[in-house]
């Protein structure tokens, strides 16, 4: 029972980390901090603009795979099967 609760709390922790990164990348970098980030150039593009257009999407995809990998490890740690 305790192991189930710990598994769930670790899962929730991962979800909150993912949501925090999702918010930082999409709203933070793409909207709230867009002006200061636009001072930096990435391959000729303004960084704030790049985050709003492409960077956030790449980050979301990376987050999905990172979450999947972390949950796999968690499954093994707590001997959870599909």
């Amino acid at each position: 029972m305790k192991s189930k609760e710990t598994y769930w709390s670790e899962n929730l922790r991962l979800i909150f980390i993912c949501l925090a990164i999702w918010f930082t990348v999409s709203f933070g970098f793409g909207l709230l901090l867009v002006e200061p980030l636009n001072e930096i150039r990435l391959g000729g593009y303004k960084l704030g603009f790049w985050f709003a257009q492409q960077g956030s999407i790449y980050s979301f995809l990376a987050l999905i795979f990172w979450y999947g990998a972390k949950m796999n490890k968690l499954d093994k740690k707590y001997h959870v099967k599909d």
Partner: peptide, 12 residues
């Protein structure tokens, strides 16, 4: 693709 990835792709 494991169930966590499937869920993540559905939530995204």
């Amino acid at each position: 693709m494991n169930r966590h990835l499937k869920i993540a792709f559905m939530v995204a």
